[in-house]
């Protein structure tokens, strides 16, 4: 047996150039990447992630947050919360980072055709869901009602605010945004996102829910969805764990019997219900 050629090595980052870098929120930014060699684009499915490498600093898993129908425009939205992401916050047009991917399971956007869709998300959890939203909007006629329920800490922490406002102005989807706290100039909801679920109108027997956010928020969202009559098999959540390899070898992302990197990050909820409420698993 001879070693596989390096080209097929999933551990080898490919250099990507920053075509554009922009600030989204005080601690959050987006990078639009193009392959440094051979601009053939980058095929991925909504919900998948890449491992991004900052030269000499390290590597982090980041969900792809652009439009999968535009493979030439590869966008990641990143929150600066550690050494690697802090370093990435300083990247400018023309800089180069390494990329491995795409990895992981996608949102089941094709399988939920014909259904009502409820998207429940909080904070930067909107980023991994945005490719799914783009897909739904681009194929609007294939779906029933589309409901987006989004939560942020304050009005200043609303990610993709302009897009949310634009979607909110459409007659074919419904968008509700809730914040934990707000001043007098906030006319929207105040409170946690799961509270928005009981007010949303959908056909519980023919609805698929996609959730991404902190685990405690996903926990109460699932509860509210179950109360509204949506079964676990129609609920999909995106999980987050430490990852070093994204190929099922490093063991860090283990979640009960699952490897979040390759069996997830998107899980059908009935597959993880038993362990979801176990603390520190």
């Amino acid at each position: 047996m001879s070693p596989l050629p390096a080209l097929n090595d999933p551990m080898l980052p490919r250099p990507f150039r920053i075509e554009r870098a922009w600030r989204e929120l005080s601690d959050t930014f987006s990078l639009y990447l193009v392959p440094q060699k051979g601009a053939k684009g980058f095929a991925y499915r909504p919900g998948q992630f890449n491992m991004l490498y900052q030269f000499g600093v390290g590597e982090v898993p980041i969900s792809i947050s652009g439009d999968a129908a535009e493979p030439l425009k590869l966008v990641h939205t990143i929150r600066a919360v550690g050494t690697v992401t802090d370093a990435m916050a300083g990247l400018k047009r023309g800089d180069v980072i390494g990329l491995r991917g795409p990895f992981g399971t996608p949102w089941p956007v094709e399988k939920m055709a014909g259904q009502d869709v409820v998207i429940i998300t909080g904070g930067i959890g909107l980023a991994p869901l945005r490719p799914a939203i783009y897909h739904l909007l681009a194929n609007r006629e294939k779906y029933g009602k589309i409901i987006i329920l989004y939560g942020a800490r304050t009005p200043n922490d609303i990610l993709y605010r302009r897009e949310l406002e634009k979607w909110r102005g459409r007659f074919d989807i419904s968008v509700e945004v809730s914040v934990d706290r707000a001043g007098h100039d906030w006319a929207g909801n105040v409170g946690v996102v799961p509270n928005l679920i009981s007010r949303a109108v959908f056909d519980p027997l023919h609805t698929t829910a996609l959730i991404c956010g902190p685990e405690i928020m996903m926990h109460y969202s699932v509860k509210a969805l179950n109360t509204a009559g949506i079964r676990d098999k129609r609920i999909f959540v995106s999980m987050e764990r430490n990852m070093k390899c994204a190929t099922g070898f490093c063991g860090h992302c283990q979640y009960g019997p699952h490897f979040v990197c390759k069996d997830g990050p998107v899980f059908r909820f009935d597959k993880i219900r038993k362990i979801f409420s176990v603390r520190e698993i």
Partner: peptide, 25 residues
Amino acid sequence: FCTSTKDLTSLDGKTAERQRVWDSC
């Protein structure tokens, strides 16, 4: 079989190496 990765950078910042090392849960 769990591993972690280590990023080693030269003092002048010109070269970097990525290693895979045994890790523990």
